[in-house]
Design a protein around this nucleic acid. Structure first.
Lengths: 197, 197
DNA sequence: AAAAATGTGGCAGTCACTGCCACGACCTCT
DNA sequence: AGAGGTCGTGGCAGTGACTGCCACATTTTT
């Protein structure tokens, strides 16, 4: 890695850290891009080259945690349920790397609508990608709806686990929570909508 | 209803219609609030009183379709699975009221990131509300995770059905699609993540 | 008909975000 | 090591979403 890349990686990290610092201190809305840029000692124009939108500053960690793990789906030639479990476990493992940041992200998502929207969008896109992968991976190929619901289950587990973890203020263990959620699913303990007679 | 309310309802509808017209014609991004306001013959400042953000113009119909149906959950004293089915059926029924608009919303969500994000956020909030309701409705009260997953299932069905309907270009029948999705769920035809041995 | 309530819209201002361009730091090739 | 090419940096001007404020007009109430 050249010096250039190194500096850029450092700058990126610095901007991100300063941003979270200011968000926690003054709130998301009350913090301007100019302030963040000043705190990181870069020009606003430069900041925008690293983070195209203000919300990106917040959700980037969650986004990369999700999408990095998605590539594991090709890597493991295991049967689908096991591969899905691996993907989910890896997402949660990477998130556990920086619990404070995950907590901060959800804190900000709770107080700011556009952050929450961007976060929701990342989950949406991830689910769509996963659905597409599932469709190609299964043999014989399932109907589109089956693939969509499979991907939905995966993101449901992740969302539910992370939310429960956030509600426990980081006390709970994500892996344990995930197993709990999957057990509930597998045992059919979740009420499914049914037609009345 | 007084004259004032009537006029406002008309203005609201007019703004919304003109907005969709312009979005379809020039694209979401290339259409400015000023243009929409001019087309609806109101001041921009007035438009903002009806629709606080540009995205609201797009997602309002879906939003009200979802949240109006949510109140049915209290109304029907049926067992939960049946009540959930009623809620879902009502959401889809109201959406079928104006298929062109639903199609337009998803068209715009596909091309514009912030619209998609706001749409995703609406679904997120709806799910959260439903989870809360489920928690209070069931006797004995389920653990939070069960409630969350139950609500997630409901929104999964709606999302999957609407997406499939959109992909069919409106040819399919939402009610039929919903029954298909629920059958898949009930019969355990969806691969659930599992720990490998 | 007068008075109170409330929707309308213009104006100025903030802030996220972009295209453009000159500058300078890094990298490559000899 | 030095010359030239590459590429990140950041300033400037501009667009457009959105807001607070205030005067005006229309509707509603008394």
């Amino acid at each position: 890695m050249g010096l250039r890349e190194l500096k850029m990686a450092r700058t990126r990290r610095l901007i991100s850290d300063k941003a979270f610092e200011l968000f926690a201190c003054n709130g998301y809305h009350r913090t301007t891009i100019e302030q963040i840029a000043a705190a990181a000692e870069v020009g606003p124009r430069t900041l925008y080259r690293y983070f195209p939108t203000k919300e990106t500053l917040v959700i980037e960690f969650v986004q990369t945690s999700l999408f990095d793990a998605l590539s594991d789906l090709h890597a493991t030639p295991a049967p689908l349920p096991v591969a899905l479990n691996t993907v989910i476990a890896n997402v949660l493992r990477v998130m556990s790397t920086d619990p404070a940041r995950v907590m901060a992200v959800y804190e900000l998502a709770g107080t700011n609508a556009s952050v929450r929207a961007q976060l929701a969008d990342v989950l949406w896109q991830w689910r769509d990608n996963l659905a597409h992968e599932v469709e190609q991976l299964l043999d014989p190929p399932p109907c589109r709806m089956t693939a969509a619901l499979t991907a939905a289950f995966a993101i449901n587990i992740i969302e539910t686990v992370v939310l429960a973890w956030v509600e426990s203020r980081g006390q709970a263990d994500m892996h344990t929570l995930a197993n709990h959620a999957m057990t509930l699913l597998r045992n059919g303990n979740i009420p499914v909508p049914t037609e009345g007679q």
